[in-house]
């Protein structure tokens, strides 16, 4: 028992590496917030562009979105991080992680928003257009408010899943939680930092999961 405690909950190791883990939490939060904001906004923008139904543009969006959804984020991350320098583009690892996760979230978000837009009955468009609202005004004031509401539950789940992928940053050396924890573990030869990392993830993501559940019930569509 004491060996178990010494391995996972070593007080000395805890104190020594707490600052590093806290630093990792800050980095994880920064990336997560950036990914969520940019990913969802980009996804919404793509869905809006798609609703104009320009064939060539939509073909590009569909292919891009399918590729991003099909590839494991890790593959994309390594490809961008180790590939781009070969063509002379050097992007900091933090930015690579942000970019890749934001693109992946955008791809899923686009599909979710698009499904929401498609599920709004044709009669809503016709009613708005018959009062003189243009295409864009109808989209913005009538269709999107309803579509976004429908999108919230699936989008919440997807956003949580992708945000947790910030841990992948460790393989390209982004100093987020897992990176700090594994580094500390190899220096100390003790698993306590990994346990600290796990607890740090719980502290960050349990409230997010709870918020997600609240959003799902809050935005569940009130049937007319």
């Amino acid at each position: 028992m004491s060996r178990f405690l010494d391995t996972f909950f070593n007080g000395t190791v805890f104190e020594r590496y707490l600052p590093a883990i806290l630093k990792g939490m800050v980095v994880t939060i920064e990336i997560a917030v950036l990914v969520v904001i940019t990913g969802i906004l980009l996804g919404l923008a793509l869905a809006v562009v798609r609703s104009f139904r320009v064939l060539a543009i939509n073909a590009v969006i569909v292919v891009l979105v399918d590729v991003l959804r099909a590839l494991p984020p890790m593959v994309l991350l390594l490809l961008v991080y180790f590939g781009l320098p070969n063509v002379g583009i050097v992007v900091p690892s933090f930015a690579v992680l942000w970019l890749v996760l934001a693109l992946v979230l955008a791809a899923f978000a686009e599909e979710i928003f698009w499904a929401g837009i498609l599920s709004i009955p044709k009669g809503q468009w016709e009613a708005a257009r018959s009062t003189g609202l243009g295409f864009l005004a109808t989209l913005v004031h009538v269709v999107l408010p309803q579509a976004i509401r429908l999108a919230v539950p699936p989008l919440t789940n997807r956003t949580i899943a992708i945000t947790k992928n910030t841990a992948l940053g460790t393989v390209i050396g982004v100093g987020e939680i897992l990176n700090q924890a594994t580094a500390a573990q190899s220096f100390s030869g003790n698993a306590t930092p990994l346990m600290m990392g796990a607890i740090a993830y719980l502290i960050l993501f349990v409230p997010v999961v709870a918020l997600g559940r609240w959003l799902e019930t809050r935005f569940a569509w009130r049937r007319a």
Binding site: P121, G123, Q124, E126, A127, A128, S130, V142, Q146, A224
Partner: peptide
């Protein structure tokens, strides 16, 4: 224009 299914914005 008034529609059969009302089409109010819910």
């Amino acid at each position: 224009m008034v529609f059969q299914s009302f089409n109010l914005y819910p």
